[in-house]
């Protein structure tokens, strides 16, 4: 019971929950988004390089055309 109250107080942030938690939420979301974007780009180029080394089709794993220089 005591822990629940302490946790409730923690969540309430002294009445400023509606400002403190969104601040941490938006920080986490934006940093996660920038990291995910970088990760996805790296995976995409790694796959394209592998594919080019294999058969030179110039397409990524989903079969989309990825290169403007391909014939």
């Amino acid at each position: 019971m005591m822990e629940e109250t302490a946790f409730g107080a923690f969540l309430a942030m002294g009445g400023y929950a509606e400002f403190v938690w969104p601040a941490y939420g938006v920080t986490g979301l934006v940093l996660l988004a920038i990291w995910l974007d970088g990760y996805r780009r790296r995976r995409a180029v790694e796959r394209a390089l592998q594919r080019l080394a294999r058969d030179g089709s110039g397409q990524d794993a989903q079969g989309r055309d990825t290169g403007r220089n391909d014939a």
């Binding site: 780009r41 790296r42 180029v45 790694e46 390089l49 110039g58 290169g67 220089n69 391909d70």
Partner: peptide, 15 residues
């Protein structure tokens, strides 16, 4: 990632 993308462009150009 950007260096790998440059390598990919160069390889495509060569091909």
């Amino acid at each position: 990632t950007l260096l790998m993308e440059a390598r990919l462009r160069a390889q495509r150009q060569a091909r």
